[in-house]
Design a protein around this nucleic acid. Sequence first.
DNA 1: CGTCATTACGGAATGCGTAATGATA
DNA 2: TATCATTACGCATTCCGTAATGACG
Lengths: 313, 313
Amino acid sequence: MYTLDQARAFVAVAEELHFGRAAQRLAMTQPPLSRQIQKLEKSIGVQLLQRDNRTVEVTVAGQAFLAEARKLVVAADRAPAMARRIAAGRAGVLRIGFTATSGYGMLGRLLVELDKDLPDVDVELAELVTVDQVQALLDGELDLGLARPPFDTAHFGSTLISTEELRLVVPAGHPLAGLGRPVAPGELADVDLVMYSPATSRYFHDLVVRLLPAGHGKVVHTVSQIATMVSLVAAGRGVALVPESTQVLGISGVAYLPLADHGAGRVELHALWNRESRNPALTPARAIVGKLANNKGDTSTTSIHPKITLDRH
Amino acid sequence: MYTLDQARAFVAVAEELHFGRAAQRLAMTQPPLSRQIQKLEKSIGVQLLQRDNRTVEVTVAGQAFLAEARKLVVAADRAPAMARRIAAGRAGVLRIGFTATSGYGMLGRLLVELDKDLPDVDVELAELVTVDQVQALLDGELDLGLARPPFDTAHFGSTLISTEELRLVVPAGHPLAGLGRPVAPGELADVDLVMYSPATSRYFHDLVVRLLPAGHGKVVHTVSQIATMVSLVAAGRGVALVPESTQVLGISGVAYLPLADHGAGRVELHALWNRESRNPALTPARAIVGKLANNKGDTSTTSIHPKITLDRH
DNA sequence: CGTCATTACGGAATGCGTAATGATA
DNA sequence: TATCATTACGCATTCCGTAATGACG
């Protein structure tokens, strides 16, 4: 069987039509080049070059082999470069899971940065609630998750991306909106409350339950989508507690009121990944996540909404 | 730089996920295989296989390289096979020139045989008068010509493909058609004659001039296309001498009469080729031509008209 | 202790470069 | 005689196979 070097040698000779110049181009002397061509011809059993001590010309079969040999050497050169880029995490596929709420603030900026720093990494997105993200990460079906506590820190590495406060969202004209000051949880004793589903939005559900004094609030609806929740508030069905980034949704007919009890009502968003992950693209992606986490002050003020292809699976 | 053997080795290991079985498949022992993989990884600077003395798995970069390596080895295997087929004349391009009249009898059968015996040889056709075929053959723009004498036997090899007799073609109802016997050239003293152009149909022109006694025949038209000639006869403009295969044109309103003087009026069709030709497909094509020439008895009776792509240049 | 990948080592083969040869204009 | 491909020859490198080692269940 012939070798790649022989193919390279043949291409050089066929292009130069001169063993001396071809040898020079290949950084070798004529004799070994001549021998390599002979071996190549012998191994494929066909005369590729017609040469008579004075001139070199390519046979018909040689023309055909030349075209194949050219493709061969460029493919041989390209393959390692591709492997290197993937190994460096600069190419390949990164599968990101996100919760519906994380999409409002964080996801857009992350995608912008990924596209800027890792343009050859294809990003696949899947909207999943936290528990599904955890499972997908364990199954190796996801590389990076944007999710909320709790999750198992033994299996997962994580970075706190942002914390934001809860806001009380009320219908426009609601009495609480006229207070002109933060609302204390104790003032919500008798209000109608639009509540999170404990099944699909456990984190928010538990957060709100912890925040409100026992027995406060009368649950009039249970939903899992924050957008639905705000729409119900706008329709006058009650009030609700939502992360401040919800304001970027721009739903009209409601007012967002700060809560007096800072700290207890803070919502955390984490980036998390399986420590066993073998995807090289994860390393530079984590660096980008860390960079974004450092200036979390503007989390709720961003209005970036880039075009995103949403790949569900 | 890595070698094709290393690419083959990697493909085998990546598919078997087991050095022992891969080595067996490659007809070698484990140690050199292990070393080749190491060299491959070192040369491209990327870990392709994750192995821990017990299990082998392909890294993400390895997956990408595997796909490239597979393409590489199949391309490497295919290239020599293609070159061999072309060198054997079993693939490639064969450019055939033919005269308008040769197309009526011979060309169709030749193409059928070529397609049957050399299905991977692409045939390009060009209709050219003999002198143009000779020039094109000398210029290397044609591989095989179907033409008529004379041509230079020093530069060209040739095979006599067929000889056919001339026929006198007369309008239906013409007095000569009622004779019921061959017509002697001497009987054409006073007829109106449709004649060949001496410029583009020199062979036929000279043949007819030699055949007719001096002064016989009154030339009423000079044409270069035999079909045109027969049409003029059908229109009553005169009579003409045409090769017998012209009958397959099926032009109505005429009668084809045999000539009494056999031998003098025989038309030869030769296949010819440049002895310097380097096209390997010419060799088997010549064999096919020779095979067709041997049973030339049915030259004029054939009615085969296969679909042909006519490539002029 | 069996399996499987790797390292150690000795011999064969391959490949390079320099020098010599042959053929052509 | 100059040029250019090829052959001859010596040396270094590469590569294989057998044997030994190491790690893991």
